[in-house]
Design a binder for these strands. Sequence first.
DNA 1: CTGAAAGCGCTTACAG
DNA 2: CTGAAAGCGCTTACAG
Lengths: 348, 348
Amino acid sequence: MTQKRRRAIQGATIRDVAASAGVSPMTVSRVINKDPGVRATTRAQVEAAIKELRYAPSAAARSLAGSTPCRVGLLYDNPSTSYLNEFLVGALDASSHTGAQVMVEKCIDTESADVALAKLLQAGVDGLILPPPLCEFAQVHKQVRLSGKPTVAVAAGRPLTGIATIRIDNEAAAHDMTRHLLQLGHRRFGFIKGHPNQISSEQRLNGFLAAVKDAGIRRTAVRIEQGYFTYRSGLKAAEKLLSGKPRPTAIFAANDDMASAAMSLAHRLGLDVPADVSIVGFDDTPMASAIWPSLTTVHQPIADMARMAMDLLLEEIRRKRHHDSNQPGQLLQPYRIIIRESSGPAPV
Amino acid sequence: MTQKRRRAIQGATIRDVAASAGVSPMTVSRVINKDPGVRATTRAQVEAAIKELRYAPSAAARSLAGSTPCRVGLLYDNPSTSYLNEFLVGALDASSHTGAQVMVEKCIDTESADVALAKLLQAGVDGLILPPPLCEFAQVHKQVRLSGKPTVAVAAGRPLTGIATIRIDNEAAAHDMTRHLLQLGHRRFGFIKGHPNQISSEQRLNGFLAAVKDAGIRRTAVRIEQGYFTYRSGLKAAEKLLSGKPRPTAIFAANDDMASAAMSLAHRLGLDVPADVSIVGFDDTPMASAIWPSLTTVHQPIADMARMAMDLLLEEIRRKRHHDSNQPGQLLQPYRIIIRESSGPAPV
DNA sequence: CTGAAAGCGCTTACAG
DNA sequence: CTGAAAGCGCTTACAG
């Protein structure tokens, strides 16, 4: 070997990790690819070395060598810009770690979902990631199943057959949030529903209704308005709720965008939040802590869920490749109630 | 060789072309890379073979072998969630088209910018993309220059030596927007400045002041408050502006987040937008069309700028590799004034 | 002006 | 459960 090794600007390689962990490159490769046949202790050592060396597999090498799925299609159509923001950060991050090439397509309605999906499939994606609300459209499911491509649905309302999902327990979260309002003494409620095309909308409403019922509140003290997860729809719904007599002392919106709209309207009507009316949301997008007063809401780990979606998808692709016919993974993530400034004691 | 060659889904390889043209793979490589040192007749033979075999070089192999840059670091620290959203969509898209691996790091302040940058460099990125405001921090510039990595600054205030930039003419845009307000009859103005750590803040202010001055408006009819590009800072600034006597009839905020905050406050004070006060922003983030009334603002092609940043960066990396010492590219993008509902005739 | 050798960082296929 | 060998398709560095 008269030639010396070319520059090492590339950072750590699989060989460095192997040396550091005291195993062969082959074993490192197995860990990266989540091969189950690696002893737990070995895996831990390798993972530690990966972390320490900040090792990121080379996408080029993996795809050259042949195994890695390199293309992941991400199809989105999300009305909430802040939700999407979080999601993309997670997706981009996962893409950089896994070396997968994420191909993004946006669509505006169900019609264009068809076209966009076809486009992704033609580009040769190995699998698909569907953020809400696309992940809940029956038509999209059908097309996805037809394509035979492994798919992960994020924040789907419930487990889906043949499609992996990552979600939280929307009903329990809404129930907990409502209990928070009840504990503050609220007895007259307004609820702004999410888009009817998403199961989670229904689940959030159900959690709310169950908690209210458990507390012995009569249905007449509860007003429900339809929203569509957008700021604008929240504005309309809040208008109806706040002009009703008697006025609710607390409004629970099924996402942060609508809660924020409700707050804006309350201000325009000269109401103080939370002295006159408490307003709470759902998702804990960055907007929740940006606005004033800051929003009490349900925290959903959106970026993490996007990251996990990528990992789960790569796993599914491999499973399918090995003709493993188990049901796709179904991950349930934890949520948290975040109490900020927009909720307070009910006015006397 | 007991092992047989793996599937040939890839189509023709450089070896096939070489064999067909009766030369070595090396010569084919030279032709592909437009190396001038190849005899014309040889080149012609190779090109014919390439055509005949429909040969397309493998991106993965090229990048592995060393010619194509594969890793791009994206360091961000942006207070505006909607701006970032747009930016990431563009970055993710460009990443999928170029096949480059984008490694994302977030930092919270200048201190952590140091750490985050070091992290990216250690991960072996070939170049860096800096969205605002990082692209304007002197300390970040210094560190970037020290690293010697090709870098593209997006939406920097002005051309930077040694760093490629993509930007719009902030001053001209602010000037145009102010003319729009003047044409509507406004004569008393409030202006919410952007973060002082960004040159564009100053430029937007300057454009505004120049237009106001050109129109013969006295400085006493103009109130300027400091903001920091965040919703919260916009709220504070708007509070000062709207409580002043006489009240301005138009407020120009240096970005959409602050404009949106000003609108929220105006509503809280019982003012109608635009009947009592016109409010305009800058950036045209998705928020601008989400809120109500929708926001008149300056459209900046954020996602496109992120996409171009990626292309420009790959070019810079190649330039640097060939020791081409020209000044890095400086791209100026067009802007547009988008007139929506939040601006109207001055109250009489 | 052209080519033979070595290697990029990873994986598949095989062996133990 | 783990590893040694061969190879993915291309390029850099060297030699002629």
